[in-house]
Computed example of a mutant assay.
Amino acid sequence: MSYTGPDSAPPRPRRPRRGLLIAALAALAPGALLGWLVHETAGGSGDPGGAVSAGGPASSGAAGPSRAPSRAGGAEDPGAAGTPAPPRASAASGPLEGKVVVVDPGHNPGNFQHTAEINRTVDIGTNRKECDTTGTATDAGYPEAEFTLDVARRLRTLLQRQGATVRLTQDGDRPYGPCVDERARIGNEARADAVVSIHADGSAAGNRGFHVILPGAVHAGAADTRPIVAPSRDLGERIAGRFLRATGSAPAAYAGDGSGLVTRKDLGGLNLSTVPKVFIECGNMRDGADAALLTSGAWRQKAAQGISEGIVSFLRG
């Protein structure tokens, strides 16, 4: 999990990495994939029922000049100013009619221009942490904040087709943030049936794969996650299994026990939530093979599809 400081240099031009996509998929460990599929089946993830096809927009998701996030540790992550946001539409009738989903695109493409604002601290229950961070980026300069916004918009479209009411915590419509406490509050006030925060990691090169972050049991200050620990785990397990199946990416071996699930108690976005919520780190932007996937519009559509199917499975029980 890595972030940008205010002194970052402008991003280098993006370099096509299509050749790495095939190599990345070929390099997935069969054992890890099989093990997770067994885990997913045993975990009781029901049929998503009515899941939409994996088709959809496959644009690069980059609009306007790239921002320049680079690595600067210590702040909270668990980060795609993509194509212009589509006109707001009411949810269609479908199996998720009456359900509310909040999608939280990590970071904000404008955060790097508002370092004073995002560096102020907010209460996360257990302690105080930065309001927000700038996120990480690929070595070629593709920002996490653009990636997350692009996937969030694709996910919104898929869920709306299922009849869900979908709200984004930010849609490229504010100069920075929101702060992590406000991100949690948006889900709480919406009385969301599920909240998913979308991110991409900034770990060392060679570290590959995705992982889903679950809330640990926290009861301190303004935080009390005890009622949401179990449903959040159910949500996270379903998303992890469907994400693996839709994208072909393996669970990260460098985070947690290799199951693709990590429990944390230091993230304000989870600590302050009163509704089921998880984070997903879709891949490692600092690894060349993962970066080739994350910068592919077609792969981002698969990522949105996997997350959507996990949410649908959770909400339908």
Rank of each mutant, 00 (worst) to 15 (best):
T4R: 13
D7N: 13
D7K: 10
P10N: 12
P13R: 03
R15Q: 12
P16D: 09
P16T: 03
P16Q: 00
A32K: 11
L33G: 05
L33N: 00
L34R: 15
V38P: 00
H39C: 00
S45K: 00
G46H: 11
G46M: 12
P48Q: 00
G49E: 02
V52F: 09
S53I: 02
A58G: 10
G61S: 02
G61C: 08
A63M: 07
R67H: 11
A75E: 11
P78W: 09
G79A: 12
T83H: 10
S90I: 06
A91S: 12
S93H: 14
E97A: 14
G98I: 12
G98S: 08
V100L: 07
H107R: 14
N108Q: 06
P109V: 13
G110N: 08
N111K: 13
A116I: 13
A116S: 11
T121K: 15
V122F: 00
D123G: 10
T126N: 10
T136N: 11
A137K: 07
A145K: 04
L149G: 13
D150P: 07
A152P: 03
A152H: 06
Q162L: 15
A164P: 04
A164S: 03
V166M: 04
V166W: 02
L168E: 11
L168P: 12
Q170Y: 08
P175N: 04
P175T: 03
Y176L: 09
G177Q: 01
C179F: 03
C179Y: 00
R183P: 05
A184N: 03
E189L: 15
A194T: 02
V195E: 03
S197Y: 09
I198F: 01
A205R: 06
I213F: 01
L214F: 01
A217L: 07
V218W: 04
A220Y: 08
A222D: 15
A230R: 09
A230C: 08
P231D: 04
P231I: 06
R233I: 09
G236N: 05
E237W: 06
E237S: 15
I239G: 14
A240I: 01
F243E: 11
F243Q: 10
L244G: 10
R245W: 10
S249E: 15
S249P: 00
A252T: 03
A253P: 01
G256S: 06
D257A: 12
G258Q: 02
S259M: 07
T263I: 09
D266I: 10
G269T: 10
L270T: 11
L272A: 08
L272D: 05
V275Q: 05
P276C: 07
P276D: 04
K277G: 00
F279V: 14
E281I: 08
E281P: 07
M285L: 15
A289G: 07
A292S: 15
L293I: 01
S296H: 06
S296Y: 05
G297N: 07
W299A: 02
W299G: 08
W299H: 13
R300V: 03
R300C: 02
Q301V: 01
A303C: 02
A304H: 02
A304F: 04
G306H: 09
S313M: 06
S313D: 07
F314G: 03
